[in-house]
Amino acid sequence: MSDTESNSSNRQTGIATALQHPQPFEESTIFDEYREIMTRSHEQQRQIYSEFKAFTDDVASWVKAASQFDNFRSRKRIKTRLEWIKAKHGEIEGVRREVVTCVEAVRAALSMLGGITRSLKGFSGIVKDEFDGGNDSDLQEPRSVDCAGPNQACAK
């Protein structure tokens, strides 16, 4: 007999033996296996749930920390901007003081030259100056200058 024929006959006898002698049906074994499988399944579910809960706790902590960090950065940014604004305000105030000093110097110079009948108010408006002839050889009689605007001719 060849190897294939002997293997085939052995299989047939094994199958026949298994069919002739079925294993007895034990209900308690099946329930025990079911309980064991369900216990392992519940343990895996508890482990997955605990990992998930730890993950969500970590995410919640991260969100809280990120929110606090953003608030800190916002406060720092606002503080920096306020410092910049205060510095610019100081610079502008310095320029304003210089302009006021210059205007006062111009007023003093004009008053020394012959007096101003009307004080300067701002940088626009009608300026009326009257000069005395006095000892100046150029100015022999008092004269007034009226200018209505920058594009209009002045009357002497």
Rank of each mutant, 00 (worst) to 15 (best):
Y49N: 06
I30T: 08
D132V: 14
A109Y: 00
E141H: 09
P150I: 04
W84L: 14
R143W: 06
K156Y: 02
F131Q: 08
T4H: 09
G94C: 02
A18T: 02
K76T: 14
S2T: 04
R11M: 11
S8Q: 11
T80R: 13
I85W: 01
R143C: 03
T56E: 10
R73F: 07
A87V: 03
Q68D: 14
F55P: 04
G90E: 07
R73E: 12
I30P: 00
K121L: 09
Q47C: 08
S137E: 07
R73K: 15
C102D: 02
G125A: 03
I116V: 02
G114S: 00
I37F: 07
A66S: 15
I85P: 00
R143V: 13
T39A: 08
G122L: 07
A66N: 15
D136F: 10
G133V: 00
S74W: 11
F72W: 14
V100T: 06
R75I: 10
Q152D: 12
G114C: 01
V99T: 02
K64N: 13
W62Y: 11
V103R: 02
R96F: 09
E98Q: 11
A65P: 00
F123H: 03
I85L: 10
Q152T: 12
E33M: 09
H21K: 05
D70K: 08
H21N: 10
G134A: 12
I15Q: 04
S61Q: 15
A65F: 11
G90S: 10
E43C: 03
F55Q: 06
G125Y: 09
V59F: 09
T4I: 15
F69M: 08
Q140E: 06
D32K: 05
A16T: 02
A54L: 08
M1L: 07
T4Q: 01
R118C: 02
S137L: 06
T117S: 00
P22R: 07
A54D: 15
A108W: 00
S2N: 14
S67F: 07
T80K: 12
S2C: 08
K76R: 07
Q47E: 14
A109P: 01
N135L: 11
V145I: 15
T117H: 04
E51S: 06
V145K: 04
Q47K: 13
Q45H: 08
Q140K: 13
P24C: 10
R35P: 00
G125E: 03
D129G: 01
F72T: 15
G94T: 12
T80N: 03
G14T: 02
A16K: 04
W62D: 15
S67G: 03
E93A: 14
M38Y: 08
E26S: 02
N135S: 05
Q140V: 15
H89K: 08
P142M: 10
N71F: 13
V100N: 06
F72I: 15
M38L: 12
E91D: 15
P142C: 01
E51F: 05
S2W: 04
G14A: 14
S144Y: 02
I30E: 12
I85A: 02
N10H: 09
K121W: 12
I116T: 00
L139E: 01
E104W: 03
S67E: 14
S9L: 05
Q20M: 07
